[in-house]
């Protein structure tokens, strides 16, 4: 990818994403409903709400540590990501710690990820 970012190619504007029902969309055109409906079709994956609790600088340049409260049990999960890494916020769309960098590197329209934002994440469906 000519993006200058080490993020996967599917985050670059124009990438083609296949939803669970087979429909194809560009990554920048995805809506909250696309993820919810795809998860409903999925036999293994379910959508969890992950609320941003903290965003801290990492010791690694251009990385941030994002702490989430995941699911109904509010489990604490921290991830270290590039500051341009886009998360999908419910009802809002792509958001990152540094939206300017996301837009510059990936051309993906993006807003600022903030404490309190509720992101879409995945967990396994209960297989019991």
């Amino acid at each position: 990818a000519p993006s200058g970012s080490s993020l996967p190619a599917y985050f670059i504007k124009g990438s083609i994403i296949q939803l669970a029902d087979g429909e194809l969309k560009h990554v920048e055109d995805l809506k909250t409903e696309d993820f919810i409906q795809s998860a409903e079709i999925s036999s293994e994956l379910k959508i969890d709400s992950s609320t941003v609790e903290r965003i801290d600088d990492s010791h690694t340049p251009n990385f941030a540590i994002v702490q989430f409260s995941v699911g109904e049990h509010r489990a604490q999960v921290s991830v270290e990501v590039q500051v341009e890494y886009p998360f999908f916020v419910f009802g809002q769309g792509w958001s990152s710690c540094c939206p300017d960098r996301t837009t510059q590197l990936l051309e993906l329209p993006c807003t600022k990820l903030s404490v309190g934002d509720v992101c879409i994440s995945l967990t396994l469906k209960n297989l019991r």
Binding site: I16, I17, S42, V77, V79, T123
Partner: peptide
Amino acid sequence: VPVFPWHSLVPFLAPTQSD
């Protein structure tokens, strides 16, 4: 042109199951 599955885009945040 590569086609990516929708779930590639979503972080997999799996809390430790306690129940």
